Simulated assay, not measured.
Amino acid sequence: MMKASLKKFYEYLGSDEELMYFVRINVDWNEESFIKMEQLIREVIRDYANDDSYPKRFIIYIMRDIPSIIGMLSHFKVCTEDYIQKGYTQESYRNLIAERVERLQKVIEDFIMSL
């Protein structure tokens, strides 16, 4: 039986709010999507902590898709107009992206430690 956290995560993956969608299709960062993704992943990790395995699709997302997002973010060097309007400079935008890359790497590490 699929746990509620995994169901919510799969719904997120199928939505146009998913972080990979923003990064790949829109070539833009989306903080709300990132926060939601991070929260959902941590919920799944908590819910499956006592199980012997994770569902395959979840593992693939962590081990393939998140590294792909990290790779794409390495090309995010110019602050978009939306972020300039939010008060970011080129430097503060690059710092934001670098911090988010670190958090994405931490998600991967936390997942591996949960195995």
Rank of each mutant, 00 (worst) to 15 (best):
Ser74Ala: 08
Asp110Ile: 03
Asn95His: 06
Trp29His: 10
Lys86Trp: 00
Ser5Glu: 13
Met63Asn: 14
Arg46Tyr: 05
Asp28Lys: 12
Leu13Trp: 09
Ile108Asn: 11
Tyr88Asp: 09
Gln90Gly: 10
Glu102Ala: 11
Ala4Gly: 05
Pro55Gly: 01
Lys7Asn: 11
Met20Gly: 09
Phe9Gln: 01
Met1Val: 11
Arg46Ile: 03
Val107Leu: 15
Glu102Arg: 12
Ser53Tyr: 14
Lys3Trp: 02
Ser114Tyr: 10
Glu18Ile: 02
Cys79Ala: 09
Asp28Gly: 05
Phe76Val: 05
Asp47Pro: 08
Ala4Gln: 14
Phe34Arg: 06
Leu19Pro: 09
Glu91Phe: 04
Gln90Phe: 02
Phe34Thr: 02
Ile97Pro: 06
Arg42Asp: 07
Gln90Ser: 14
Arg94Cys: 12
Asn30Phe: 06
Asp47Tyr: 02
Arg103Ile: 01
Pro67Leu: 06
Thr80Val: 02
Met72Pro: 01
Asn30Gly: 01
Leu19Val: 10
Glu99Thr: 04
Arg94Val: 08
Gly87Glu: 03
Glu18His: 10
Thr89Glu: 08
Tyr83Arg: 11
Arg64Ala: 12
Leu13Arg: 15
Ile41Cys: 09
Tyr21Trp: 05
Phe111Gln: 08
Glu109Phe: 09
Met1Leu: 09
Met20Pro: 00
Glu32His: 07
Ala98Val: 00
Tyr48Gln: 10
Met20Ala: 10
Ser5Pro: 04
Tyr21Ala: 00
Gln39Asp: 13
Asp65Ser: 13
Ser74Leu: 10
Arg46Gly: 00
Lys56Leu: 12
Ser114Lys: 11
Arg94Gln: 15
Leu6Met: 14
Tyr83Ser: 07
Arg103Leu: 13
Lys106Gly: 00
Glu18Lys: 09
Phe22Arg: 02
Asp52Val: 01
Val78Asn: 11
Lys7Tyr: 10
Met72Ala: 14
Met37His: 02
Asp28Ala: 10
Ser15Tyr: 03
Ala98Met: 06
Ile69Leu: 06
Asp65Asn: 15
Tyr54Leu: 04
Met72Ile: 01
Tyr61Arg: 01
Ile60Arg: 14
Val27Lys: 15
Val101Gly: 01
Met37Cys: 09
Asn26Asp: 08
Arg94Lys: 15
Thr89Ile: 04
Asp51Phe: 13
Ile108Cys: 12
Gln85Cys: 02
Arg42Leu: 12
Asn26Tyr: 10
Thr80Gln: 14
Glu11Asn: 15
Ile66Trp: 04
